[in-house]
C-alpha cells in the first residue's frame, strides 16, 4: 500500500497512474484532478510539470508526452506506452475480491446474470494476483434492509422496521427515525429515535428483519431525553470469555467487582441468568430479587418432572 512507500516512490506511482486517468478524462479541471488524487493544486501542477518532461528515449518533442494544463483544464496526448492503467497489487486485488464476496450475498438470487459476473470477476482478479486461497464473506444484513436504511439516512426520513429484540425475545413493529450507524464491539447498530418507545434506541443491524422508508415526514420530538439508566454492581465468580464480552470487560478476575450501566432491566436479568454461576448481581436489590425468583420458578419446574 502507498503509505509504506517513501515519498518519491509514492509520487512515481501517482505519476504512472495519472497518465491513464487523464487519458480517459480529457479536459478534466486541474482542481478536480487534484481532488481525485488527494493532493493540493500546487502539488498537481508539480506532478504534471514533471510528467511533461518524460517520454521515450530521444526526448525530442516528438517523443515526449503532450500535456496541456495551462488553461486550468488537463489534456494529454502522445502517451501510448502508459495509456492503460497499471495492474492491481496484491492488496488491491484482495480488497476487490473480498468486496465482491460481500456483494454476492446481497444480490437477489434471480439475478444469476450478476452472480455469474461476480464469480468471473473474482476468478480473473485471483489469477492476476496469483491467489489460490479462497475467502468467504457473508453480508451481515439483508440487502433490502440495508438499502432502506441507506435511503432513510440520506433523505432524513423515518423507517418502519420489524425488529427481533434479543432481550425481550419478540419481534416487534416499530417506527423509527434513524440517526446514524454506530459500531460497538465489532457489531453494527442503527442509533435511532423510536416513536413506539418515544425514546432513543439502538437497533442491532442484523436483527432488523424488514425495513420500509415511510413517506410521512417525522422528526425527533424536542423534549426527548434518555430514559432511566440502571446502575448496577456485579461480582465475578468464574471468569469466562462469554461474560467478558457480554459486559464489555477487557479482563475479569474471580472475586473482583465492577459497575455496569444499562437501560434495560430485562437485558440485565437475562444476562445474569445466562451467565449462570459465572457472575452475581450485587445491586440494585430489586433486580437481584427478581433474578432469584425467576431462577427459582425455573428450578421448580425441573424438580417437578
Amino acid at each position: 500500500m502507498g503509505k509504506n512507500f517513501s515519498a518519491p516512490l509514492e509520487r512515481t506511482a501517482r505519476l504512472l497512474d495519472l497518465v491513464p486517468y487523464i487519458n480517459t478524462h480529457q479536459g478534466i479541471a486541474l482542481k478536480d484532478l487534484a481532488a481525485v488524487f488527494e493532493v493540493s493544486n500546487a502539488q498537481m501542477v508539480n506532478d504534471l510539470t514533471t510528467l511533461w518532461m518524460c517520454g521515450l528515449p530521444g526526448y525530442t518533442p516528438l517523443e515526449l508526452m503532450d500535456l496541456d494544463f495551462e488553461s486550468g483544464y488537463v489534456n494529454i496526448s502522445n502517451a501510448p506506452t502508459l495509456a492503460k492503467p497499471r495492474s492491481v497489487t496484491f492488496d488491491e486485488g484482495v480488497a476487490l475480491i473480498l468486496g465482491l464476496d460481500l456483494l454476492r450475498a446481497s444480490i437477489p438470487t434471480d439475478r444469476s446474470d450478476l452472480l455469474e459476473k461476480i464469480d468471473s470477476l473474482s476468478a480473473r482478479l485471483s489469477s492476476i494476483i496469483n491467489l489460490n486461497s479462497t475467502f468467504s464473506v457473508i453480508a451481515p444484513i439483508n440487502q433490502g434492509v440495508s438499502a432502506a436504511i441507506d435511503e432513510a439516512l440520506a433523505s432524513r426520513s423515518s423507517l418502519e422496521i420489524e425488529y427481533h429484540s434479543m432481550y425481550r425475545d419478540e419481534i416487534t413493529q416499530r417506527t423509527i427515525f434513524p440517526i446514524e450507524i454506530i459500531q460497538v464491539e465489532g457489531q453494527h447498530y442503527l442509533s435511532s429515535y423510536c416513536y413506539s418507545a418515544t425514546d432513543f434506541r439502538q437497533f442491532k443491524l442484523d436483527r432488523i428483519q424488514k425495513a420500509i422508508v415511510t413517506q410521512e415526514s417525522k422528526t425527533i420530538p424536542e423534549d426527548a431525553t434518555d430514559t432511566q439508566r440502571i446502575n448496577s454492581r456485579l461480582k465475578v465468580l468464574k471468569p469466562t470469555r462469554e461474560i467478558a464480552e457480554r459486559f464489555s470487560r477487557q479482563d475479569l478476575k474471580a472475586g473482583s467487582e465492577f459497575d455496569f450501566q444499562t437501560y434495560s432491566q430485562q437485558w440485565l436479568e437475562r444476562s445474569i441468568l445466562s451467565s449462570g454461576d459465572g457472575v452475581a448481581l450485587l445491586t440494585p436489590p430489586e433486580i437481584r430479587a427478581s433474578i432469584a425468583q425467576m431462577a427459582q420458578s425455573m428450578l421448580d419446574r425441573y424438580k417437578a418432572e
Binding site: 500500500m1 492503467p85 484482495v94
Partner: peptide, 15 residues
C-alpha cells in the same frame, strides 16, 4: 483495505 480499495478504484476508473 480502504486505501488499497481506493487505489484499485482509481485504476478501474482509468479504464
Amino acid at each position: 483495505f480502504d486505501e488499497a480499495a481506493q487505489k484499485a478504484l482509481l485504476k478501474l476508473n482509468s479504464m
